Simulated scan of single mutants.
Amino acid sequence: MSAERYPLNWLRGSTPSSFAKGYGVDVFTYNRDMIHSLSGELTQKMGKFLFVGIGGVEFKVMVPATSESKLPKLGDKIVVYTFLHIREGGADLYGFLTEKELSFFELLISVSGIGPKSAVSILSVAPVDQLMAAVSRGEAEILQKSSGVGKKTSERIVLELKDKITADGDEVSVKVMESDNDVYDALINLGYSRRDARNVLDKIDTALTDTGDRLRDALKKIKN
């Protein structure tokens, strides 16, 4: 039997603990945002959403596009770190495969004018390590690849977050980021879709740093 689609209306008039107890499961880790993570079965993938089944309930979670190539097979277990955004008329659940992505997402939405959807869009541009490295070095251009983020907005993000981020492997990350920007543009010019071009970047051999070598490796793997 497929899991029930649950629209998060349980937030009204009930507590998460009573909800979980009612379904006979202990699945929530709490922080100030109420639901820190979901651990369950990956039941569906639908565009920018994935569905996590837990105890007969199916949670709809919006994830960055960069998560797509890292998802397990349908039916396998998945852990998603989440941010619950309560808005007028409903609630949205945003999910990330690592706590680092969640932390960077929370930094992004702390910037004036950046909402959850814009933050997810930014995280869809490149791996989180590359984004953090770019921001820490004051490189705003990569953020402008995100839909709806222009020059002024990207510069504001860098200005507000630059001193709050410590990027591990800074020099290497930035070099790879710059190379991948060129690889991505080259693949688009060759006629590949944005989705395929973005997904193959995660499959490139991490030992390769030269742009030409990374492009050749991408061309081999984008067809597989």
Rank of each mutant, 00 (worst) to 15 (best):
Met1Phe: 15
Asn9Cys: 04
Leu11Gln: 15
Gly13Asn: 13
Gly13Leu: 06
Thr15Trp: 10
Phe19Gly: 06
Tyr23Glu: 12
Asp26Phe: 05
Phe28Lys: 08
His36Ala: 14
His36Gln: 14
Ser37Asp: 13
Ser37Gly: 03
Leu38Pro: 05
Ser39Tyr: 13
Glu41Arg: 15
Thr43Asn: 13
Met46Tyr: 05
Met46His: 11
Leu50Asp: 00
Gly55Ile: 12
Gly56Glu: 08
Glu58Phe: 10
Phe59Ala: 06
Lys60His: 11
Ala65Cys: 02
Ser67Glu: 08
Ser67Asp: 11
Lys70Asn: 12
Pro72Met: 12
Leu74Gly: 06
Lys77Asn: 14
Ile78Phe: 15
Val79Ser: 09
Thr82Glu: 06
Phe83Ser: 15
Leu84Arg: 03
Leu84Cys: 05
Ala91Trp: 00
Asp92Phe: 14
Tyr94Glu: 05
Gly95Val: 06
Thr98Asp: 02
Thr98Cys: 10
Lys100Thr: 15
Glu101Ile: 12
Ser103Leu: 09
Leu108Asp: 04
Gly113Ile: 02
Ile114Thr: 00
Gly115Met: 08
Lys117Trp: 11
Ile122Pro: 01
Val125Trp: 03
Pro127Arg: 04
Val128Met: 08
Gln130Trp: 11
Gln130Leu: 09
Ala133Leu: 05
Ala133Cys: 10
Ala134Leu: 11
Val135Ala: 10
Arg137Ser: 11
Gly138Ala: 03
Glu139Asn: 03
Glu141Phe: 15
Gly148Trp: 02
Gly148Asp: 01
Gly148Ala: 10
Val149Arg: 00
Val149Tyr: 07
Val149Ile: 15
Gly150Trp: 04
Gly150Phe: 01
Thr153Phe: 02
Ile157Lys: 00
Leu159Val: 13
Glu160Gly: 09
Leu161Cys: 05
Thr166Trp: 06
Asp168Pro: 04
Asp170Ile: 12
Val174Ser: 07
Lys175Glu: 11
Val176Phe: 13
Met177Gly: 11
Ser179Tyr: 09
Val183Gln: 08
Asp185Cys: 00
Leu187Trp: 09
Asn189Trp: 02
Asn189Pro: 03
Leu190Glu: 04
Tyr192Ala: 00
Ser193Gln: 14
Ser193Pro: 08
Ser193Glu: 05
Arg195Asp: 11
Ala197Ser: 14
Arg198Trp: 02
Asn199Ile: 10
Asp202Thr: 04
Asp202Val: 05
Leu208Tyr: 00
Thr209Asp: 08
Asp210Asn: 11
Asp213Trp: 01
Leu215Arg: 01
Leu215Asp: 00
Asp217Trp: 09
Ala218Glu: 06
Lys221Cys: 07
Ile222Pro: 01
Asn224His: 06
Asn224Trp: 00
